[in-house]
Structures are given as structure tokens and as C-alpha cells.
Computed example of a mutant assay.
Amino acid sequence: MEDKLPSTPNTRSGDLGEVIGSHYAARDLGYRMIAKLRWKDHRQMPMRGDDIVGVRVPQSGSVEFLKGEVKSRTLLDRRTVAEADKALQSDNGRPSAHALGFFADRLDEKGEVDLADRIYAAQLSTRIDQHQVLQLLFTFTSNDPRKILRESTTTYEGPITRHAVGLQVPDVQAFVAAVYAKVVADASKP
């Protein structure tokens, strides 16, 4: 188990940010998410594609997609938010084919065949319209992110709806270290 955990503070912070961001998208936005980090087979394995991908099917029956970018920094700055914006704009603002394929495959493995088939169909035949996508910029930082995130969302002029959420923790690195210490301690228990 320990050999699958990231070993550097930056990688640990990024992975934890993705976990928290995914839980936020599931709980507060109602998207079906998967815990993609469970499929890491080694700490150095990069998880290519979008940081967060989700799907939901509202009463109308059409599929809605979430494309999320997570930035975990001790001090969030405009340059970091610009990096996130660039990542959200990739693939014409839609979730990448690679990320959606990975997501659908995991749903299929879990027996959620109908939802997996809807994702495959959206990729292969019906195509994903930008109006079916919500972009989420999720930040995990020690400084107050509100001003930078507000600037980012008010200057954004793209066709896809975008939300920005900032989680502020007084000392991100100490928090991350404590979480990983607990994970390692719990993993070593019989």
C-alpha cells in the first residue's frame, strides 16, 4: 500500500486536492464520480487526463458532464489559476476522450452499464455539446482564494458554464502531512 502513496509533499497535496474536489462534486453538485486514484498501481504513475470527471443524468434524461481542474498550492496566485484555465479549455472545454473512456470503463466494471453506455454513446455517436458540460476549478490553498477566483470567473467568457470553489486550510502542507501520516498508520494496522 505505501508504495502506491505519493512520496513528495506536492504530489500528496495534489492527490488529496483531487480526492476532496471529487467528493465536493459528488456531494454538492450531484455528479457520479469514481475514485480514480484507486487505480494507481505505483506512486510514480501519472493519472493522465482531467483531474476530475463526473456525469449526471437529470430528470430530462440528457447526460451532463463535469470537467474539473484541481490546484493545490500553499499560496494560490493568478499564474496557477491561468494554468487551470488552460487545462479547462483543452479539448474544446469538454472532458478528454481518454478521461471519459477510463471513467466509463470503471462504471462498466462496477455494473453501472447503462451509465457507462451513455458515456460511450456521447463520445461515439451523439457527441458532447458544450452546453452539456460544467467546468469546475477547485483550489486547495492556505491563502484566501476568493479574490483570484472571483476575477477568474468574471473575466471568463467561454460558452461553458464554469464554477470555482476555493477550500482554504490555514496550513495546507501540515494538513496534508497529517492526513498521509494517518493513512500510513491505518494501513499498517492488522
Results as ranks from 00 to 15, higher is better:
127 R>H: 14
95 P>W: 04
71 K>C: 09
116 A>R: 00
82 A>D: 15
65 F>L: 07
168 Q>G: 01
188 S>E: 10
26 A>G: 13
82 A>L: 09
36 K>S: 13
176 V>M: 04
118 R>Q: 11
104 A>M: 06
141 T>H: 03
177 A>N: 07
92 N>E: 15
70 V>L: 10
176 V>L: 02
14 G>N: 06
1 M>F: 12
170 P>R: 08
36 K>C: 02
25 A>I: 12
184 V>S: 14
89 Q>E: 14
45 M>K: 11
32 R>Q: 11
72 S>Y: 02
39 W>I: 01
126 T>E: 12
60 S>M: 00
184 V>T: 15
169 V>D: 05
106 R>A: 13
147 K>I: 10
175 F>T: 03
76 L>E: 04
160 I>H: 04
149 L>M: 04
35 A>T: 06
81 V>E: 08
73 R>N: 09
122 A>E: 11
182 K>H: 13
135 Q>D: 08
64 E>A: 03
59 Q>P: 09
61 G>F: 09
161 T>M: 06
110 K>Q: 15
93 G>T: 05
126 T>F: 07
16 L>S: 01
63 V>W: 07
70 V>M: 13
139 T>E: 07
50 D>C: 08
138 F>S: 01
128 I>H: 04
79 R>F: 08
165 V>E: 03
157 E>Y: 03
124 L>K: 13
143 N>I: 01
148 I>H: 03
62 S>M: 00
154 T>I: 11
85 D>T: 14
47 M>L: 15
47 M>R: 12
64 E>R: 12
107 L>E: 10
24 Y>R: 02
28 D>A: 03
129 D>I: 01
62 S>K: 04
74 T>N: 05
143 N>H: 00
18 E>N: 13
93 G>V: 04
5 L>W: 09
55 V>Q: 01
3 D>F: 13
49 G>A: 02
122 A>M: 04
146 R>P: 01
109 E>Q: 11
137 L>D: 13
172 V>Y: 04
181 A>K: 13
85 D>V: 07
80 T>H: 13
46 P>C: 00
29 L>T: 09
163 H>R: 08
51 D>N: 03
54 G>C: 12
144 D>N: 11
188 S>G: 04
17 G>N: 10
135 Q>Y: 05
21 G>V: 01
44 Q>L: 10
60 S>C: 03
123 Q>S: 05
24 Y>I: 01
163 H>F: 09
27 R>N: 10
169 V>R: 02
33 M>C: 09
66 L>T: 06
85 D>F: 11
3 D>V: 09
64 E>Y: 04
28 D>N: 08
78 R>S: 14
149 L>I: 07
121 A>P: 00
10 N>D: 15
47 M>V: 15
127 R>I: 09
68 G>H: 11
